[in-house]
Amino acid sequence: MEIKVLGSGCTKCKTLEKITREVVDELNLKASIEKVEDIQKIVEYGVMVTPALIVDGEIVVKGRLPKLDELKEILNK
């Protein structure tokens, strides 16, 4: 699984990266996590509001911080 956390330096973006790592560890998922901070790249993904989460090329969350349970459900698919 390829996970990308999109977001510049804002608090919510950092939190999203942190909880994503936690969930991946907790669920023992085989995943690479990359933080994308370059705004130009973020826009290229078609995202205008951060934080956003991309899993295997698909935008699964954007513009908000998902709850922990929701994030587990998304990543467990």
Partner: peptide
């Protein structure tokens, strides 16, 4: 429109694009 101030730049780019 819901967005936080830290999204101002990506939003700006998206609009201009």
């Amino acid at each position: 429109t819901p967005f936080c101030s830290c999204s101002a730049i990506p939003l700006f780019l998206g609009f201009i694009e």
